[in-house]
Structure formats: structure tokens, C-alpha cells
Design a protein around this nucleic acid. Structure first.
Lengths: 249, 249
DNA sequence: TAGTGACCGGATCAATGATCCGGCGGTCGA
DNA sequence: TCGACCGCCGGATCATTGATCCGGTCACTA
């Protein structure tokens, strides 16, 4: 009743302190994204709200919209931000297989470190961090001699494989501290056992019966893909050599 | 003003017709899911709301909650429902590679036919349709002689590969009639060209510069995986034979 | 004929994404 | 030195959405 309107110069105590008197810097886009990642890590994707994010930043929720257009921006930026942790192999690693293995492994580790990221993979990833790592992937493949029919297939295959693997594992793996995942996996096991007569092989050999070694399976599949790519290189060079030989003849 | 309260027996014209007089059956869970799939196909995932779904079904939104517990139920059921269209190969197909190729290809086709499904892959898939196809996958692998270290890796690798591929392609592919996807891809190309100096290889060989042949790349990667699995079989039998030989010796 | 249970929906609630519009305070030019 | 501009902030508010309360209708049965 005493107020003359929103933000009117009422009692000093009701006004926010001057910007200079605050401890925090003036809220950059980077700070928002950083806090968003922290919030996502701690509470999961469905708990990320503009209000909650603003609260953690000590600002009003509407302020965020000055730095970002929509909530999707936050998610896109957060998704790209975590890829900064993926180390791009230097020139000191051995062959191209080692380099790609290192990159893909790091990619996977990041996705699993931030389980919420798996659900966001269904959006265009055009951030600088992601692009830089894709650039390295392509460059390494090209440097290894992978030619165009196989090049796209190799890059796609590797990317899709990591993404799919991380998505699946994040779906099923229960972070030790979170009970929900455990409950889901447990219920799934139960469900499978209950209907075991309908799915005999799944009930015996399937996943979930005893969650296998994700890492080992991933590594094995990755090796298969790399073997295939390598075979493609040799076939390509052989064909090229053959062609040049026949041409010179 | 004339009404005595919600649902009170006012004018006949205001009351819904008797159930028997209606044309549609009494709204089963199956009918809801069927309509949900149609709605998702036509308008996409973000346009699926309980109200809109109920409206299409000619009922009130609250009625849906008698048949389903939450909206997630709708999504889970819809996701499983589309897999009914994946044909499980019969015994007449040739070797195990042909059978698995057929299954995986069908799996992929379904995911691409319903682009909204890609975004839902991050949830436990325990529906009967999905389980039946996973059962077939495992059974075929076991029948082909894939032993346990490779079995999990093979099943996971194949599943993850399809899922990742479909997710990526659904993200980037523009349905011809939808402008949004075209615009995104176009903007992405533009973006890549603009920052081409930072990503030289991507700008030349990368995707997006000229969207490659998704099908061919997918097929190639699938062949690599199958080759790896096949090699695993032979190595496994060789090792087993060796072990038994050394044991018998 | 009275009662039971499957099925339906208007009104309503809380949470959320997004926007309107006004306000502060530092800075820059005159 | 002063006043106008601009980058930055936020209270109040709106529309939408998922979900629930509670009462109503109807077919069927005893």
C-alpha cells in the first residue's frame, strides 16, 4: 500500500543494493551457462527452470531473458559447454587409431559424466567446442587416408555409435546416489523375469539380467568400427593403385 | 446462469449424448495411443498436449487420466507402438547377417518414419514390441554362435548404432514439407562456411556442405559392425576349439 | 427398483516459459 | 558540471500445460 509502484524509490531496505556494492559480477552469459551446467548436474534436466536458475544466480528470472532468447538457448549452450572438457589429442599420440580412440573415449566420458546431456543430443550441435572436436575427427580420418565414400560413413558411424551408446547407458545406468535409476533397472529386471517365457533368450543372455561391462562392450564395438574403417582405407588405396596402374599401362 | 452446477441435468441440448448414441467406442487405451501417434506424426512432439489429444478424440482432457496415469505413459506407449511395424524376419531369410540386417534396417526405417521418436529414445524401452525385436536380435546372435564376451557388445553395438544414426539423421534431415528443418540445415551450412577458416576440413569434407547419402553411410557402418561380429565368432570358435584341443591333449 | 461400478468431464490448482513496462546507475558528449 | 542516453535488471502478469478433485451419467445386475 505504501509503495507507489513496482521499483519505486521506497525504503532503502527494499531496494536491491547498488550494482557496485554486490559481490557478483554483472551476470554474463557464460556465468549463466556455468550455473546451468551445475544445476543440471546436481538435479537433472527436469529440474532446470528459469526461475530456479535465476534464483541460484541471485537474480530475477526475467533478467535471464536479457542475456538469452529462450530456455533452449540455455540447453544448447550447456550442451556445448561440457564438451570443452574433451581433450583433443595432440600430435604426440601414435597412429590415427589411437587418436580417434582417445577422442571418442573422451567424448563418451563427458556424456556419461553429465547424464542429462544424453537427452539433449537430439538437437543440432553447432557450438564451437563440438565443432572443434568434429573438425579433429574429420582431419584425422582424412590424414589417415580415408577417402570419400568411407569418410562420411566413418565419421557418422563413430559419432552415432558414441551418441547411441551414451544415450543407452545413461538411460539404464543408475548413478549410485540416485535411487530412481536403481528402481527402474530393478523393475525392468523383474518385468523381464516375470515375462521370461515370452523372451527366453533375453531372460538368459540379455542385458539387465546382470548389467554387463559397459566399458568393455563399448571398446569392442569401437574396435570393430575402426577395423572396418581401416579395411576401407586399404581397399581404397588398393583400388586407387590399381586404377593408376591400369592408367599408366 | 440457468445451470444449477457443473454437469447438472440442464437442457438436454447441453448434455453430451448418451454413450450408446455416440459413434465412437468408449475410448480405450489403444485408441488413445493410436491417436497420439497420429498427432505426433502430424504436428511433432512439442505439439502433443493432453488437451489437444483429448480434443482429437472428442473427449475431455481429464478423461485421459482415467486410462493413463501420466503423459509419459502416452509417450512410452506411442514409442513402443510404432515398433509393431518392424517386421521380424522369418526363418526363410538366409544367414544371420541377412536376418540382422533386415531387422536393423526396419528398425531404422521406423525411427525415421516417425521423427519425433528419436527424441524419446532416452527412456527405458520395455514395451512388448521392442522386447520382441530385441529377443529376436539376441536369439539370432546366439544362434550364429556369438559367445558371451562378444554377445553383449554385438547387441549393444548394433542397437546403439541404429539409435544414434536415427537420432542424428532425424535431427538434421528436413522433412520436405517442413521448412524449419530446411532453415536449420541452411543456417548450419551458412554458419560453417562463415567460420570455415576455423574448421577447414569440416568446411570441405564435413557433413552439411552437401548432405551425403545417409542410407549408404548407414549401410557401410552396419557392414563394418557385422564384419567385426563375424570375426569375433571365428576367433571365439577357434579359441574354443583350441581350448578343447589343449584340454583333450 | 435400487445399487454398484465403469467411464466421463467442468472447474480448478500449481508450475512454468515468456513478455510488458518501468526503474536504476554508469557513461559520454556538450 | 549536467542531462540525456543506454546497458542491465526485475516485479507483475499472461497463456499454456500437466495433473487432480469431485460430482455426474449410464449400463448392468440382483
Amino acid at each position: 500500500m505504501a509503495g507507489k509502484g513496482p521499483g519505486s524509490a521506497g525504503d532503502v531496505w527494499l531496494r536491491p543494493p547498488a550494482r557496485a556494492a554486490r559481490e557478483s559480477p554483472p551476470l554474463s552469459r557464460d556465468r549463466i551457462v556455468e550455473e546451468a551446467v551445475a544445476l543440471l548436474d546436481e538435479e537433472g534436466a527436469d529440474r532446470l527452470t528459469m526461475r530456479r536458475l535465476a534464483e541460484r544466480l541471485g537474480t530475477g528470472s526475467t533478467t535471464l531473458y536479457w542475456h538469452l532468447k529462450t530456455k533452449d538457448d540455455v540447453l544448447d549452450l550447456a550442451l556445448d559447454a561440457i564438451f570443452a572438457a574433451v581433450e583433443i589429442p595432440g600430435d604426440d599420440v601414435g597412429d590415427w587409431r589411437a587418436a580417434i580412440t582417445a577422442l571418442i573415449t573422451g567424448w563418451r566420458a563427458v556424456l556419461l559424466d553429465h547424464p542429462w546431456s544424453a537427452a539433449l543430443l537430439g538437437r543440432p550441435m553447432l557450438g564451437p567446442n563440438v565443432l572443434a572436436r568434429s573438425e579433429f575427427l574429420y582431419a584425422t580420418l582424412v590424414g589417415a587416408g580415408v577417402a570419400e565414400p568411407c569418410l562420411t560413413a566413418a565419421a557418422y558411424g563413430l559419432s552415432n555409435y558414441v551418441i547411441g551408446s551414451a544415450l543407452m547407458q545413461a538411460t539404464w545406468t543408475a548413478r549410485a546416489e540416485q535411487a530412481a535409476g536403481q528402481a527402474t533397472a530393478q523393475a525392468a529386471r523383474e518385468h523381464l523375469r516375470a515375462t521370461g517365457d515370452r523372451y527366453p533368450v533375453l531372460a538368459t543372455h540379455g542385458p539387465l539380467v546382470a548389467d554387463g561391462d559397459w566399458d568393455a562392450s563399448f571398446t569392442l564395438g569401437l574396435r570393430w568400427l575402426l577395423d572396418g574403417i581401416q579395411a576401407g582405407i586399404q581397399a581404397g588405396t588398393a583400388a586407387a593403385g590399381e586404377a593408376s596402374a591400369s592408367r599408366s599401362r
